[in-house]
Design a protein around this nucleic acid. Structure first.
Lengths: 367, 367
DNA sequence: CTGAAAGCGCTTACAG
DNA sequence: CTGAAAGCGCTTACAG
């Protein structure tokens, strides 16, 4: 790492504010607070008007003569005044900010979802406070309650916990709440989900239609709702085709590469090795692709969630895609509808998935 | 989309607070504010103690008898009190929140960077307010100033604008600021960059070492600092090898697939077609991979930024990787050092890149 | 060990 | 058209 020191710069203010020593309220020195920023009171003093008049100008309210307005504007410019929204918020009761709690900011699946939530928030003049639960229920709760303490107007939560009763007082106190991707636990609240069951069932049926009968399922930990739903879809498709599932074909657990690799190797090398694998999410798919690529005998694969460059692999990876941006948009719109006073019963909104065939899911059974 | 209405739930509070009608201050009804949450004043009244004693208990300060503390705790539980950090912040002068402004929350390059910033913020007890500039200078400024109005303690900015003088009053007023990935324009501030020049130079030298002389460069728009630096690295490597650059080999512009595709096709089909391409960032690389895959004659490729599954393509994609997480971590640590009072001159910190060879960059020139 | 008063920087509800 | 007073829900600086 090269560290290059550069020319020192002054961090003193350059806007000339308060060179007149205008603080007149006799309070203790507050240099450390907000870097001693000018307040409306300072502006009022400089412009020779009342506090309320400054407030009117700053908020573009009617009822100020052009001349008065000009004098206030000049004082604002001269002092470099910027309204403290933190104080405004305290008085108004709405913070114009919402919280988004997801599993991991670094997971590409959540990028488009976050961006969609941000766009809706922006359209409503709200800022987005973002945090990762790291799939840890305690961390989720800690983060959610910290957001509530900041009095965010609403929360979009991709839950890690399976018990959200800790949110009941907050919801009762008026915090709008929408769950996404997974349902809340032990409370009733709005939730937007992809059709995990239907998507997985369709994906597995696709493999069956291409001649497979020994099909593996590798999914996320069983405490995660989507893992269970997708497994249920797998079992339904198998049952529909009259295939009995050998339990050695099914593996749920953490989605780190080592665990998934072991699971895949095991079901590909047993006495009744699978000829196809259904991967329960994007992380599983990526690892299974690697395992399959290292083997000589072809293995069919369908993955839940689309992944970048899936079309450029050989064969291309067939996936059950969910629309992450639409999940985020739908959830955020629902949230702002709550904030606008819509007070219907909590709803479950389920978005469809889409099978994208690219080759890996159309391979016939080997051997 | 299936919309399933579920059982209605009551949104009334379940914690039994204020069933005694304890609001005693005679103010106007404030039902709409924060959903009528209990305040320290309510807790104090219920526990029969002073406001300051409640504050002591809530903040874990010493000097409260066990008995008093117990009474206060009981009142807190009974009322479902949660401290309003929004009010606290107004008094304390620090919001314990930082802003992160990046180009696009949906871009996978920024995922690990955001997560790293979040972890550092979390370690310092701060929340992260996140927003996308959409590569629009006006939107960047709007977002940054909105964050300043909320009085975030600091800002981590991946700039879209090339003039940041609008930030001078804010920095002077004490807002800690660190730029990442690209330097600020027309102001002096801390900045953390990857070594774009050196990385590109090394990547192009790698292609030259494998026999290429006609090498294309496709990069981002020329107003983006990294695009210029990487092009400079390309030119330096070519000059080092005594190769004169034909300007038809160089293309800068937006990184949408159509533009990049046209640029790539043009330099691969001209009178002196290139035998290798250096791609200026992850989005360019992805499109160039697609273009190359559709052609019969092999083309060597080195891309700036690593991409997922790059190792599974054939050939694997050779890249100049930057450490996005380290960029974020370094910037955030620098930010909190500013907030802890370190008042040195602004510094430029440059992080090294790493060449990862996977095949595409080691192909010999075709034809 | 405890609490009343003043204040953070705004907006609200009035009164002129 | 304009502004003084009270208040949002906390913390600070004191005084007992």
């Amino acid at each position: 790492m090269a560290e290059t020191a550069r020319t020192p710069v002054s961090r003193l203010r350059t806007d000339g504010s308060r060179t007149d020593g205008s603080r007149t309220d006799g309070t203790a020195d507050s240099k450390s607070r907000y870097g001693n920023r000018p307040t409306m009171k300072d502006v009022a003093a400089r412009a020779g008007v009342g506090l309320k008049t400054v407030s009117r100008v700053v908020n573009g309210e009617a009822g100020v003569t052009p001349d008065t307005e000009r004098r206030v504007q000049e004082a604002i410019e001269a002092l470099g005044f910027r309204r403290n929204d933190s104080a405004r918020v305290l008085r108004k009761g709405r913070t114009a900010s919402i919280g988004l709690v997801l599993e991991d900011l670094a997971d590409p699946f959540y990028g488009p979802l976050s961006r969609a939530v941000e766009e809706v928030a922006r359209a409503h003049g709200a800022l987005l406070i973002n945090g990762s639960s790291a799939e840890d229920p305690d961390r989720e709760q800690e983060l959610v309650l910290a957001l509530c303490a900041r009095r965010v107007d609403g929360l979009v939560i991709i839950p890690a916990a399976d018990d959200h009763r800790y949110l009941e007082p907050e919801i009762a106190a008026g915090v709008a709440t929408v769950f996404v991707d997974r349902p809340p636990g032990r409370i009733d609240a709005d939730v937007v989900l992809s059709d995990s069951f239907g998507g997985a069932r369709g994906g597995v049926a696709h493999l069956i239609a291409h001649g497979h009968r020994r099909i593996g399922f590798i999914g996320d930990q069983p405490r995660i709702h989507t893992a269970i739903e997708r497994l249920r879809g797998y079992r339904a498709a198998m049952a529909d085709a009259g295939i009995e599932v050998d339990e050695s074909w099914v593996s749920l657990g953490p989605t780190d590469p080592e665990r998934v690799r072991r699971a895949a190797e095991a079901m590909l090398t047993g006495v009744a090795p699978v000829t196809a694998v259904f991967a329960g999410n994007n992380r599983v798919t990526v690892t299974v692709v690697r395992v399959i690529a290292a083997r000589t005998r072809p293995v069919a694969l369908v993955g839940f969630d689309d992944i970048e460059l899936a079309d450029l692999l050989s064969p291309g990876v067939t996936v059950v895609a969910q629309d992450a941006a639409r999940l985020g948009r739908t959830a955020a719109e629902r949230l702002f509808r709550q904030l606008d006073g819509a007070s219907g019963a909590p709803e479950l909104i389920e978005l469809p998935t889409r099978l994208i065939t690219r080759g890996s899911g159309e391979l016939p059974p080997a051997g």
